[in-house]
Amino acid sequence: MTSWWKATATYPPTWAAAVIVGAATWGLLAWLDPPVGLTIVLIGLAVGSIVAWPLTMTTTGKLAELQFAIPRVEEVDPAELAALAAELARLDDTQPAEQLAALQQKRGSLIAVLEHRLDSGELTYSRYLATSQQVYNSALDNLHEVAVASESISSIDEQYVQRRLSELADDHSDAESADRERTTLERRLALRDTQRRKIARLMAQNEAALTSLDRTTTALADVPIGKRPEDADAAMAALEELADRAGQYAD
């Protein structure tokens, strides 16, 4: 469920109404140039109109409609998934490709359990589906980043760099040239280490996503038909928290 203030703020007519009230108040003040008392009254009426707007939305049922609207779930393009799978298959490390397969399998399992436990028209069903999709999409984005980061350091030959550093340590013929080369080689290793730390962080985030999807699926599977899924709600709360964190990482 969306909070009332967020539903109100994201409703386009809210901003149109605020602009109209503001412009009308400013126009009256500029045209009439009223005394202080009347100015306060006009401003008070404007503020009152703005405050009354959510109440108007409530009485017409629009606020409830916006708060309980079923979120739309966008499916991932199969071609995009195939392209990502091909990128990951080219990596020396098999873990990213394995994560992709696990993500698809666990998302499929969650949807299958949802369909057995909840009606697809229920808000709870949509909430679970939309949140799990957000986590799934964020994990896919992480794998895209892993592929890019891995490609960026694929041409750095660590053995060559280490060998050259060892040779430079024993070469005293041209200290100045040796220092310059050593600096560039060390920078190359530093770039590699930075990207490796980034990859490790992204992979750890994805492992947390996989665990959260498993927890939600098993909690739903344990819910008796027709009963309130308290344990599943707790699992979904953790999944939502993970989705929020994924959004923060993206920023």
Rank of each mutant, 00 (worst) to 15 (best):
S3D: 08
S3I: 11
S3V: 10
W4Q: 09
A16D: 04
A16H: 07
T25Y: 04
T25I: 09
G27R: 10
L28K: 10
L32H: 09
L32R: 13
P34Q: 13
V36K: 12
V36Q: 11
I40H: 03
L45K: 04
I50T: 05
A52F: 11
L66I: 10
I70G: 01
P71G: 06
E74Q: 15
E74W: 15
E75W: 15
P78E: 05
A79F: 04
A82Q: 08
A82F: 02
A86K: 11
T94V: 12
Q99I: 14
Q99G: 03
R107A: 01
L110F: 05
L114H: 05
E115S: 09
H116M: 13
R117W: 03
Y128L: 09
A130Q: 13
T131K: 06
S132R: 00
Q133G: 07
A149K: 09
I153Q: 05
Q162Y: 01
L165W: 01
D170I: 13
H172L: 15
H172A: 14
A178P: 13
T183D: 08
L191G: 02
M203Y: 15
Q205Y: 13
L210W: 15
T216E: 01
T216N: 01
D222T: 14
K227E: 08
R228S: 09
A232R: 04
A237H: 08
Q248E: 12
Y249P: 03
